[in-house]
């Protein structure tokens, strides 16, 4: 069986983010990291592989060539191989365009039983790439999964989904696409043996020509960007607890907030 985990390299969330040309995120010179939600998706696949060692776990990413170093960390954790779709023509590709490229790569990888994605990226935050890939590949989807169990013999996947404050248990037949949210477990860290093994694992580099597709046309253009407006200066309340409480209650009433 084969599982593809879609991974995005994002600016490390502790670094301040900047916008450059065409209001696109400046990525060069910014420390990269695996998108945190994708790390959970990879962990779900690796848990499956723990139980079923012959499972072929393929990491798929679209990004610049320097994403290789980050992808290698996924291989060190236990993924079998990786595909990096890298093409100068893909710079600035929007969410649906990205989904088109990922879907084409998944087709080329072939015989894929499950696709796992993080529910959203920490930099784009649209949460639509996973479902768009599912539509392009005509797969059912289970989104915002906290945990997922693979039943290889029944060819199903059963997931605990977090949906608007409720927990849903849902099952889909394979092949299927899952998006994974912050799970109840922590993603594993690579050990020394894994890091050594990763040096021998393959990272295939594909271009849009290799996928037999044209770079997707941009459907969404960012025309402006900026800092949020400053809020008016705080009104500071001091005094005894009773005085402060009384002033707060008055404010809430006057502003019709209660």
């Amino acid at each position: 069986m084969r599982v593809v985990v879609c991974v995005k390299v994002v600016p490390d969330t502790t670094e301040p983010k900047r916008l450059g040309d065409q209001h696109a995120l400046v990525r060069s010179g910014v420390q990269g990291a695996v998108n945190p939600m994708d790390d959970y998706a990879l962990e779900v696949a690796l848990k499956w592989k723990d139980a079923q060692p012959d499972l072929d776990v393929v990491v798929l990413t679209m990004g610049p060539d320097d994403a290789r170093a980050i992808i290698k960390k996924c291989l060190a954790k236990g993924a079998d191989r990786a595909v990096l779709v890298s093409d100068a023509a893909l710079a600035g590709t929007d969410a649906i365009g990205t989904a088109r490229v990922l879907a084409a790569a998944i087709r080329k990888i072939g015989d894929v039983d499950a696709v796992l994605c993080g529910v959203r990226s920490s930099d784009g935050e649209s949460a639509v790439v996973g479902p768009a890939v599912a539509e392009l590949l005509d797969l059912p989807q289970l989104t915002t999964c906290k945990e997922a169990d693979l039943d290889a013999s029944a060819r199903t996947v059963t997931a605990n989904r977090e949906v608007d404050g409720a927990l849903e248990v849902a099952r889909a037949g394979l092949p299927a696409l899952l998006t994974v949210t912050k799970a109840s477990f922590e993603p594993r860290l690579a050990n020394f043996k894994g890091i050594q093994a990763a040096n021998k694992k393959e990272i295939l580099g594909w271009t849009t020509a290799d996928l037999g597709i044209a770079p997707p046309a941009r459907q969404v253009l960012v025309t402006a960007a900026g800092e949020p407006p400053q809020r008016p200066a705080s009104q500071v309340l001091t005094g005894t607890a009773a005085e402060v409480a009384q002033k707060l209650a008055q404010y809430l009433t006057e502003q019709k907030l209660v």
Partner: peptide, 29 residues
């Protein structure tokens, strides 16, 4: 947080909140 707040109340939450709840319930909230 006090810089982004519209109203910043300085004090002990464990004293202010019970007093606020009491004040609000006096007003029927």
């Amino acid at each position: 947080i006090m810089k982004v707040a519209n109203v910043a109340a300085v004090g002990d939450v464990h004293e202010i909140v019970p007093a606020l709840v009491a004040e609000l319930s006096r007003q029927g909230v």
